[in-house]
Design a protein around this nucleic acid. Structure first.
Lengths: 161, 161
DNA sequence: CGGATGTGCTTCGAATTCGAAGCACTGTGG
DNA sequence: CCACAGTGCTTCGAATTCGAAGCACATCCG
């Protein structure tokens, strides 16, 4: 059935390596900027951004956060602890599910997020979008969004079944 | 000069997050597969692949390897040491520059590479390329390759200058 | 109601990463 | 020839990551 050739097309290989390289380089650039301006790691920024920008209430459960971030649950616990120590978020037991923990961004958290955001977008614009036209960006988003949905739906388990 | 808006277009944001998410998820999927089949980390695989596939001689200097991989020099030293312990590569002082170290893939290294390669390409095909047509893949490569070149050329230093 | 199973989060130990400092060798200028 | 700067790699300590195991609560089924 799955007649996967032993090696990919050169075009496929190029796309694959370019994707991974761009993501890695971009992550490094972003991380450096975040560290300088706000002493934040990329994960910490992702958490603050999700709480402060995506969530209407500024709160989310640990599990929902983990679903939006690629990292493991334990790493999430660790980073949330660091953010809590710096008073950028609070962790309170959920009232409905006593086992759940609700993470909420604080006012200082929002302030720090606002402080690092301009530099962050600047790095993205400079590093990622400078060589691309508006149409290119649109095309890139349209190309990658279905891939993300596909990957989130299909866990990396055995390809069969 | 650089009138960077305080926040990115929604389209840009979507492209940015999709890119990072896809890369992260793909890295996890690939890493799991490599671990199961060959007990290799992603970095170790990259090193073996570069030595076994890209280099005609099967040898390269540490610095040249580091340039092709995003990781730091010390991480490279560590991983190369692990590969050497498993007899998958050898590290010998260069004859011309006594301070250089030449890394060479061994026969067992090539064998292991050949062993993990089919599964690797299968994962890439399934996870990354399944939702994409051939034209899409071409477009993706054409979009990302200039970005990579741009990022490699422009270090993430202060954007201003 | 009571036990079994499932879900949510944290703790634990091991592995990996990074940047800074250190060591070894090369090349250049006096 | 010798000091000095430059390059290549490794070692070191601290921080971060992961998976597995553990704990607490919720839900289901008899």
């Amino acid at each position: 059935m799955a007649h996967t050739p032993p090696s990919l097309d050169p075009v496929q290989l190029g796309a694959y390596f370019a994707l991974m390289d761009v993501a890695g380089l971009l992550r490094h650039a972003v991380e450096q900027q975040l560290r300088e301006v706000g002493d934040l790691s990329y994960v910490q920024f992702q958490l603050l951004a999700r709480l402060g920008l995506d969530s209407p209430t500024g709160s989310e459960r640990m599990t929902d956060l983990a679903d939006g971030v690629v990292y493991s649950r334990s790493a999430l616990t660790y980073q949330a602890g660091l953010l809590e120590n710096r008073r950028l978020v609070t962790r309170t037991p959920s009232e409905e599910d006593e086992r759940s923990v609700t993470v909420t961004i604080t006012a200082p958290g929002r302030a720090l997020l606002a402080k690092v955001l301009p530099g962050h977008t600047e790095v993205i614009s400079q590093q990622l979008f400078q060589p691309l036209s508006c149409k290119d960006v649109k095309a890139l988003a349209d190309l990658l969004t279905p891939v993300r949905d596909h990957m989130r739906a299909a866990p990396p388990r055995s390809a069969g079944s």
